[in-house]
Nucleic acid binder design. Structure first.
Length: 258
DNA sequence: ATGTCGACGAATCGTCGA
């Protein structure tokens, strides 16, 4: 099966692109982030017409996540249990496939703005809460994928300017430690299971011709559990949608699983 | 500080967040 993640930066604006992308890339499951709409405005009909089920967790103006899938989602969880949060950032669900159930956790990680800021402190707390909960989820669901916009460039090679951006947001030691802590739970970065082109990124700033100059970061990830890892046959960033007329600043990332 | 998007409230732009 194929799974994917895409920060669409407003589903209202990007819906036609998402539908076109699904038609060209008929993945079994797609995690969306930054819906920027309330649940009442989620376009269930459009996805249904395209042959997909969808569960969503939105809010006004900011954040918002959804799982779009061929098979219906069950055991849906919204946000991190026990972690009070006004921001809609997490949706998890179990999807049935021929190889067995897949637990999919789709997250819009906190951006954090700037190290030392209140938002950065919120980011670190959120990351710690996520870590504790993902450990439990892994114990309950061996076949698990954690996908989304992590807002962390895990290593220097995941940034267009690791020297100039050293210790800035997405690049700090604390964020990278949290990323490695997630891996240490028994997860693998699907992208790094394969040879990849140098300077592979998933996000480019809208400003200053970021995409044209490939000044990007790899901050959108698909992490797979040990039980899934051996069955992963491919993972790549699809840069094509970033070339659309009104693109999201993020490109989708896809992985093929057994 | 700046650049560019998108949402929002109360404008036909300013502010916030990314």
């Amino acid at each position: 099966m194929q799974i994917a993640t895409w920060n669409v930066n407003s589903l209202s604006v990007r819906l036609p692109q998402v539908l076109a992308w699904l038609a060209a890339n008929p993945v079994d499951a797609l995690g969306l982030q930054e819906l920027k709409l309330v649940d009442e405005k989620f376009p269930h009909d459009a996805f249904e017409a395209a042959g997909y089920h969808a569960v969503c967790f939105g809010q006004k103006t900011y954040n918002g996540v959804a799982i779009v899938s061929r098979s219906p989602a069950r055991d849906v969880v919204r946000n991190i249990p026990g972690h009070e949060d006004e921001q809609a950032r997490v949706i998890a669900a179990t999807l049935d496939s021929a190889s067995g159930p897949l637990r999919l956790i789709n997250c819009y990680f906190v951006n954090g703005q700037e190290p030392g800021s209140d938002k950065f402190a919120y980011k670190l707390k959120w990351l710690a809460a996520l870590h504790d909960w993902v450990r439990q989820e892994l114990a309950a669901h061996p076949r698990l994928a954690l996908v989304g916009d992590f807002n962390v460039a895990p290593e220097d090679r995941d940034s267009y300017d690791p020297v100039g951006l050293k210790d800035t947001i997405h690049h700090t030691q604390e964020e990278r430690r949290h990323f490695r802590d997630l891996l240490a739970l028994g997860l693998s970065d699907a992208f790094r299971l394969f040879e990849q082109p140098e300077k592979s990124y998933s996000w480019w700033d809208y400003r200053m011709l970021g995409f044209q100059k490939n000044r990007g970061l790899r901050i959108d990830h698909i992490l797979v559990s040990d039980a899934l890892r051996a069955g992963v046959t491919a993972c790549h960033v699809d840069r094509a949608p970033r070339k659309n007329k009104q693109p999201s600043d993020h490109a989708p990332v896809l992985a093929s699983l057994a």
